[in-house]
């Protein structure tokens, strides 16, 4: 018998590879990198204009704080619309093409299927995040960088991507139409974001539900255990719901 982790890796590998088999993925990746570069250059330009005044301050903010962090915050925002486009196909398309049967009839447990697909997606999103960091690292050519801030940001973006893909994966198990999965994921993520931006009128308990609120502390360089716990719980709950949904389809057809 093969061990479960090899099954998970097999599925993750297949998901990862099939993403690159479609031209649209390459197209989106290219477009994305262009948008990131645009934001980056705009931020850099603004920073260079005020830099002369900044140096007169006693404790001036560095390039990492003024350029990299805002760009990464924007990437976090873009992930909200980007992740559903990739997660929508994970299960919904397999249902529609009736290929899910292959997984269901294989000696693979439902949790292994979900874990494999989640892992493959996360690997892919990490690639996008890593590419944006490579771009930001070019700042090191002209100025010393605050690597601590970059690392908390990387951790934050990774957590955000994990939470979003877990939610997207769950919505993908609910339907046979990828488009429905995508739009409902975007709607849900937008709703969670609205809780954040709705202002101080909303209660702090409600605000604690929003992923973007928890990402903000990562973005400012804070590594808080409550934020890490939040993202772990958020992802775990979505993944458990997805596993449950897959199990139910064995029972109810």
């Amino acid at each position: 018998m093969t061990r479960p982790d090899t099954m998970i890796l097999t599925i993750a590998h297949k998901e990862f590879r099939s993403l690159f088999a479609t031209p649209s993925t390459w197209f989106i990746l290219g477009g994305l990198q262009f948008i990131f570069a645009w934001f980056f250059l705009a931020r850099l330009d603004a920073y260079l204009q005020v830099q002369a005044q900044l140096v007169q301050l006693a404790n001036p903010p560095g390039a990492t704080h003024s350029v990299a962090a805002p760009v990464l915050a924007t990437i976090g925002f873009i992930l909200m619309m980007l992740v559903p486009i990739f997660t929508m196909r994970l299960v919904a398309e397999e249902r529609r093409n009736q290929t899910l049967v292959l997984l269901m009839a294989s000696p693979v447990a439902s949790w292994e299927i979900i874990a494999g697909k989640f892992l493959g997606m996360l690997l892919f999103l990490s690639l996008i995040i890593a590419a944006s960091f490579l771009m930001l690292l070019t700042l090191a050519l002209g100025t010393p960088l605050d690597y601590g801030l970059l690392i908390t940001n990387a951790a934050g973006l990774f957590m955000l991507a994990a939470g979003y893909s877990a939610l997207g994966l769950y919505f993908s198990t609910l339907t046979t139409q990828p488009v429905v999965a995508a739009s409902s994921t975007i709607a849900a993520l937008f709703g969670l974001w609205l809780i954040d931006v709705a202002g101080s009128s909303t209660g702090t308990i409600l605000k604690a539900l929003s992923p973007t609120v928890h990402f903000q502390s990562f973005n400012t360089g804070l590594l808080l255990s409550k934020d890490i716990t939040y993202f772990l719980l958020f992802s775990a709950i979505c993944l458990l719901l997805a596993i449950r949904r897959l199990n139910n389809s064995r029972i109810y057809g």
């Binding site: 090899t6 097999t10 093409n97 009736q98 290929t99 899910l100 997984l103 294989s106 000696p107 693979v108």
Partner: peptide, 24 residues
Amino acid sequence: PEHPPLYRDMRVDDFLLYAAKLHG
């Protein structure tokens, strides 16, 4: 199954290897 579970965008070899790995 009645409708063969084939990933239409995969190569035959890749698909069969994937199926083999899934079946241990």
